[in-house]
């Protein structure tokens, strides 16, 4: 199974990199941009074939390592190979 994991900053956490991207887009002439937030995207391929077990496994991965729950949220989808 493949897990497609998105890690984003929690609302209220400042994102200076997102701000820099926002300014750069403005400088390139893209107008009307209200906000840019930057995050991470991680793909994990699992040997596990049971969806519920894979779900639990990926949640544990996110909580223990992939996301820092002080500042980040995670979400993911699972796909059969």
């Amino acid at each position: 199974m493949k897990a497609r994991i998105k890690i984003t900053l929690k609302a209220g956490v400042l994102d200076p990199q997102g701000k820099a991207i926002e300014h750069a887009l403005g400088a390139l002439g893209f107008s009307g941009i209200k906000d840019v937030r930057q995050g991470k995207y991680i793909e994990v391929t699992l040997a596990e074939t049971d969806e519920a077990k894979a779900q639990a496994q990926v949640e544990k991965m996110c909580e223990e390592l992939l996301a820092n729950m002080v500042i980040e949220n995670y979400s993911f989808t699972l796909e059969k190979d």
């Binding site: 400042l14 200076p16 990199q17 002080v70």
Partner: peptide, 11 residues
């Protein structure tokens, strides 16, 4: 220790 160290505000 609590908290986290993030990217410098100035980048």
């Amino acid at each position: 220790l609590p908290g986290v160290l993030m990217r410098n505000a100035s980048l």
